[in-house]
């Protein structure tokens, strides 16, 4: 059974940068360009008998944004951690994310090392 980390962001630059930073951890990485794309890919992974161990998600995305994604995801999965990676630093939005079921919130910019430490904490 393979273990996946989902990287959800509408920017290909961000998705590939995050994937490169996480490469050394040895997990499979699956990229999604918005919340709906992520839900579809998570479903495919699970139906294939594999496991999603962590989601890293942006907030401002078209189709289904980060808060909507977390809300929908929590209807089918209460436990897999979702860490938000965003430029949003407003208390209200962070509170909404927390209430929706986010496990952590990283405000950009971040160093690759800090991201790795947060990911390791959730997937240890």
């Amino acid at each position: 059974m393979s273990k996946y980390i989902m990287v959800i962001d509408d920017s290909p630059t961000i998705r590939v940068s995050v994937e490169l930073a996480l490469k050394q951890l040895g997990f499979m990485i699956k990229q999604a360009e918005n919340g709906q794309d992520a839900l579809d890919k998570i479903s495919e992974i699970k139906n294939g008998g594999d496991e999603v161990v962590l989601c890293l998600s942006d907030i401002n995305m078209p189709v289904l944004n980060g808060i909507e994604f977390i809300t929908e995801f929590r209807k089918v999965d209460k436990f897999t951690p979702v860490v938000v990676l965003t430029t949003e630093a407003e208390k209200d939005i962070i509170q909404k994310g927390k209430e929706a079921g986010a496990s952590g919130w990283i405000i950009k910019p971040f160093q690759a090392e800090d991201l790795l430490n947060v990911v390791k904490r959730f997937v240890k």
Binding site: A102, S103, G104, I106, I107, K108, P109, R121
Partner: peptide, 10 residues
Amino acid sequence: NKTGKILLFD
């Protein structure tokens, strides 16, 4: 070299 905050909820 400034970086943003990291908040962990659980």
